[in-house]
């Protein structure tokens, strides 16, 4: 499906109203797939391709003399990946929409079911804010089904499960965006089923936890060995090392899941964080 194609045949179009608070939909929705998304959002399309993105519908709303509104509805293929894309940008206040939402300076984003929705105004005013929320409520109501968050989240200890701190991802480039580990994919995230990153404390001062699930134990073991070689050199005991800034990093492999705690304030805190993981959830 090509860019700019009429979206009359797209299911995504059925979620969108024709007008909202006086803003009218411009004729000619644009639909993009995994190959054509770059025509719409340039190389940033890779963020969505790093998940199981299938299709995007974009509709512009206009109202004379007012800033335009843009609705982008993404079919992410699964609710886990809709949550994942949403979790890449958690800035802003809870907007009370869908299964999770934020509003930040003219950008309203939420996820529901396997859909990620981004609504933006060319410029923020009180009027555009009201229209974005009305548009969001309309779309959220039109998406009937909800979906589960990634099952890996069930492994997180409570102090790492804050709603503003949990990210789900599949790519080391996205990992580095939130917590730099290495330019190289030393955790083999490219071979993983998914990963959850979470920071405890305001800025991760009580540790940064990464839990990665691989498709089979052998791949997990290879990933753990690779990470250990690249990152845990100098460890005085297996899987536990004090890094140059005085904090502690520890890793533990169990079956198909590798958990790594970075930046723990002490060796005890590092061990405890890994011990608190709900391993039995796997």
């Amino acid at each position: 499906m090509g860019a700019g194609q009429k979206a009359a045949d797209s299911r995504l179009a059925s979620f969108l109203p024709a007008d909202v608070l006086g803003w009218k939909a411009e004729p000619g929705d644009a639909v993009y797939d995994r190959e054509t998304i770059f025509e719409y959002i340039d190389g940033a399309g890779e963020v969505y391709r790093a998940y199981r993105f299938r299709e995007l519908l974009s509709r512009r709303f206009v109202k004379g003399g007012r800033p335009d509104l843009v609705a982008d509805v993404f079919d992410m293929g699964s609710s886990a990946d809709a949550f994942g894309v949403f979790s890449n940008d958690l800035e802003g206040d809870d907007a009370g929409l869908g299964q999770g939402s934020t509003y930040n300076a003219g950008l309203l984003a939420f996820w529901k079911g396997r859909y990620f929705v981004s609504l933006s105004a060319d410029r923020e005013t009180e009027e555009t804010k009201a229209a974005l929320f009305a548009l969001g409520r309309s779309i959220a109501a039109a998406v009937q089904e909800e979906g589960p968050k990634p099952s890996l989240l069930a492994l997180l200890p409570p102090e790492f499960a804050g709603p503003k701190s949990v990210r789900f991802l599949h790519s080391h480039i996205l990992l580095n965006r939130h917590f730099f580990v290495s330019h190289e994919d030393i955790l083999s995230l490219g071979r993983a089923s998914g990963a959850v990153l979470s920071k405890a404390g305001t800025k991760g001062e009580r540790g940064v936890l990464l839990v990665v699930e691989y498709p089979d134990p052998r791949t997990a073991a290879e990933a753990a060995a690779g990470f250990s070689k690249a990152y845990l050199a100098g460890a005085k005991e297996a899987g536990l090392v004090r890094t140059e800034d005085g904090t502690w990093t520890a890793a533990h492999l169990r079956g198909t899941v590798l958990a790594v705690i970075f930046h723990a304030p002490s060796d005890t805190a590092a061990r405890e964080a890994l011990a608190k993981i709900e391993w039995k959830a796997r």
Binding site: V70, N104, A109
Partner: peptide, 11 residues
């Protein structure tokens, strides 16, 4: 700083 699919925000 980037936010949103387009990455753009006047803020």
């Amino acid at each position: 700083h980037n936010i949103g699919p387009s990455g753009f925000n006047e803020k």
